[in-house]
């Protein structure tokens, strides 16, 4: 879903960079210093998830996880995804400097939208069915919106990109369902094993409470 360097028009690049800067500014204001290590884990997870290949028939897709990130982090998903994408650009050459803004926006804005729409359902108190459905919807919706935004960025660059944009969205339809399902199962797992990761209450734990250091 990364858009390569040199494809998009200047207008789209500038708009993307501007909106991402605004989103990151909001995210950073909410990000406490003590949270940085734990948000770092999630950005690293976002990075490593792109290496997990899920088989679909003869082909395979890789995980995106921006939905899960959004459900957990809210606006803080903006800096988290920005950093993840910057590292992908540096280490794998996916995307680059000028497209960093657009690519971050395409991934992080859906994450924030999903946070507002569905995060109420993934609280610890939520009923199991509500929890599963919201997590599924979060994962699914984030991928769908991301693919729409990618398509839209291409379309805004030139009308000739319309068929390409359609193919991009169509190709992500199966990814949506898989991502939704995996997000739901994964969130359920986390709820049972490590609920504080989902709660956002992971913050004070890191800084104050002494740990029984094992391993």
């Amino acid at each position: 879903m990364h858009i390569s360097e040199g494809v998009l028009s200047p207008g789209v690049l500038i708009a993307g960079a501007g909106l991402t800067a605004a989103g990151v500014a909001v995210g950073l204001r909410r990000l406490e210093n003590e949270e940085i290590p734990s948000v770092g884990i999630l950005s690293a997870a976002f990075f490593v998830a792109s290496l997990v290949h899920v088989p679909v028939g003869p082909s395979s897709v890789h995980l995106i996880l921006n939905g899960l990130l959004g459900l957990i982090l809210g606006w803080k998903a903006f800096p988290a995804i920005l950093v993840g994408l910057a590292l992908q650009a540096l280490l794998f050459q996916f995307g680059g400097i000028t497209t960093l803004g657009v690519n971050t926006l395409n991934m992080a804005l859906p994450a924030v939208v999903c946070h507002y729409l569905f995060s109420w359902g993934v609280g610890i108190g939520a009923r199991r069915l509500v929890f599963i459905l919201s997590a599924f919807a979060g994962g699914c919706c984030a991928v769908f919106l991301s693919s729409m935004l990618v398509g839209f960025s291409l379309y805004l660059t030139g009308e000739a990109f319309l068929p390409v944009a359609k193919v991009v969205v169509a190709a992500h339809l199966p990814v949506m369902v898989i991502e939704g399902g995996l997000t739901a199962v994964c969130a359920l797992f986390l709820r049972q094993v490590k609920p504080e990761l989902l709660e956002g209450a992971y913050v004070p734990k890191l800084s104050s409470q002494p740990q029984n250091g094992s391993g």
Binding site: S38, I41, V54, L190
Partner: peptide
Amino acid sequence: HTYKALAYLVGMLFVKSYERAERVYN
């Protein structure tokens, strides 16, 4: 089965890394 296993894999990855990160930060 595969999808479930991979979802648990990702979940476990979160849990383990979270604990590790906690230790590093402390």
